[in-house]
């Protein structure tokens, strides 16, 4: 089976205008997928940043938890699918969980190495000026860890987006999702639509990357 860019373009147009299955349009697929990725990444940030901060600040916590983290980290999200369905049911919850798994570890490790990379002399400067532990966290460790933390979020978002197709293997309730759409196209032997869906995923990934890049450049304008 061969396929030309022209056919992919035509399929792309069809996905936008007619939809696959008919009525289910590409922008809506994208929106549903984005919402899952956003939820998964947000969850990963909310849990991963504090864990990363704790790991970076305390040798004890690090020694206790690092083996566990290194044990779970290499297990691919795809392998979790069945467990995810058992725990969170078909649909949104499972998908978010799988995306969370993909995004979580880069965020934890980025935050952790960020905290550890902060120059201890900066901490001393704040201490001599009368700062307490809270000040040290808010005014030195957190901002100092920011570049590495943001890189972790960026990498995590990328991996989360990559996990999307696997995540939607768990099924979708409302019939929407880019990964789900690609699987439907595959079942219909519509290679052109599969490739068009891949192009869509790539484009959204690119847009996400670009947006995060803009935000980061503003946040890290001091660098």
């Amino acid at each position: 089976m061969r396929i030309s860019p022209l056919q992919v373009g035509a399929a792309f147009w069809e996905l936008c205008a007619v939809g696959l299955p008919p009525g289910y349009l590409l922008p809506m697929h994208t929106l549903y997928s984005l919402s899952k990725v956003l939820a998964g990444v947000l969850l990963a940030v909310l849990l991963g940043c504090p864990l990363g901060l704790a790991l970076g600040a305390s040798r004890g916590i690090q020694m206790a938890l690092m083996p566990l983290i290194d044990f779970i980290r290499p297990i691919p999200p795809l392998a979790w699918i069945l467990l995810a369905i058992i725990w969170f049911g078909i649909g949104f919850g499972s998908a978010v969980f799988l995306i969370f798994l993909g995004a979580f570890f880069p965020i934890v490790l980025g935050t952790c190495s960020g905290v550890r990379g902060v120059d201890p002399l900066l901490v001393d400067a704040v201490r001599t000026l009368g700062g307490n532990r809270r000040d040290i966290w808010l005014k030195v460790l957190l901002p100092g860890a920011m570049p590495s933390l943001l890189t972790g979020i960026k990498v995590g978002t990328g991996i989360g987006w990559m996990t999307l197709v696997a995540a939607e293997f768990t099924g979708v309730r409302q019939g929407y999702g880019l990964g789900y759409m690609i699987m439907s196209a595959r079942d219909l032997q519509r290679l052109d639509a599969v490739v068009a869906g891949m192009v869509g995923i790539g484009m959204v990934g690119l847009a996400l990357e670009w947006m995060l890049g803009r935000i980061y450049r503003w946040l890290l304008r001091w660098q």
Partner: peptide, 26 residues
């Protein structure tokens, strides 16, 4: 105490004004 260390230890993410303010802020 006021300390000026060998490496200065200015907070790179703070502007000059924000660095100078730090002691009063604390």
């Amino acid at each position: 105490v006021g300390m000026v260390s060998q490496e200065l230890a200015l907070l790179p993410w703070r502007t000059v004004l924000e660095n100078v303010e730090l002691g009063l802020e604390l």
